[in-house]
């Protein structure tokens, strides 16, 4: 990436971040992201029920929380631009598609990052007041949460590029993410014939949620890194292809 590309990406990033911060959407996301999982975590099982200083239960529900929250944040990414006609503006500016994509991606990731940082008081205060946390595990959990978020973002970005309608974009993203998330759980809860065990293996390998298990345990495994980064790149690529193909339609 040369200097020009960097500044272009930065300009798009700034614009998108402004969009999040000067409109309610970013704040609504963060506040709900703090509120809903916390309530679940504190009052329906979780830290005080288990009486253990660990966030594993919190991070166990994160893949499901992301299913709703990430599309809510990203549904407008391309759909709204198309709807408002600003896509034409953006694409006739001297920007590469990938610069726009990365700028948008990073800004969305920043919001998720802020939301995750805002959950830090749970482990930190508990650590000092009630019981020591395993800091290494915590670090791995947060890294994993961020990587998983980028994968979810990449997928819902791609879906947002397919449609003009915000609501269609949201619902479609939610369904696809739910599918990719739940096939992992499915593999555990459905009985397979011994001959079909390999299907179970494949389902667990492609699921968005199973690759988070290691991170939530406190282990960073190469295969999970490859999965999340690979999936993100794949969907970025598809996304750029879809945008590119619009020029031919």
């Amino acid at each position: 990436m040369d200097k020009r590309s960097f500044f272009n990406t930065l300009a798009v990033y700034k614009k998108e971040i402004q969009n999040y911060f000067y409109s309610p959407i970013g704040y609504v996301f963060i506040v709900l992201f703090l509120f809903i999982p916390n309530i679940l975590f504190f009052f329906f099982g979780g830290i005080f029920k288990e009486n253990n200083a660990t966030m594993r239960m919190y991070f166990a529900m994160l893949p499901i929380i992301y299913i709703i929250f990430i599309p809510g944040l990203t549904m407008g990414t391309w759909s709204k631009e198309k709807n408002d006609g600003t896509l034409e503006l953006l694409f006739t500016l001297p920007l590469n598609r990938y610069e726009i994509l990365i700028g948008k991606f990073l800004s969305t990731l920043t919001i998720v990052f802020i939301a995750l940082i805002a959950t830090l008081p749970i482990p930190l205060i508990t650590h000092f007041l009630l019981g020591s946390f395993d800091i290494g595990q915590l670090i791995s959990q947060y890294i994993g949460a961020l990587l998983m978020a980028s994968c979810y973002i990449a997928i819902s970005f791609f879906i947002s590029s397919l449609t003009k309608e915000l609501i269609v974009s949201f619902l479609l993203s939610t369904s696809i993410l739910a599918l990719f998330t739940f096939i992992g759980y499915l593999a555990y809860s459905v009985k397979f014939f011994t001959q079909l065990e390999w299907i179970k293996g494949i389902l667990t390998e492609i699921s968005l949620s199973t690759h988070f298990l290691n991170f939530s345990k406190g282990v960073i495994d190469s295969i999970d890194l490859v999965y999340y980064i690979g999936m993100s790149i794949l969907f970025f690529y598809l996304n750029i292809r879809v945008l590119e193909s619009k020029r031919w339609s």
Partner: peptide
């Protein structure tokens, strides 16, 4: 994916 199955690394950050 398959390659990393064989040549994998793990950082165990837990205490």
């Amino acid at each position: 994916f398959v390659i990393t199955k064989f040549f994998y690394f793990r950082f165990d950050l837990t205490k």
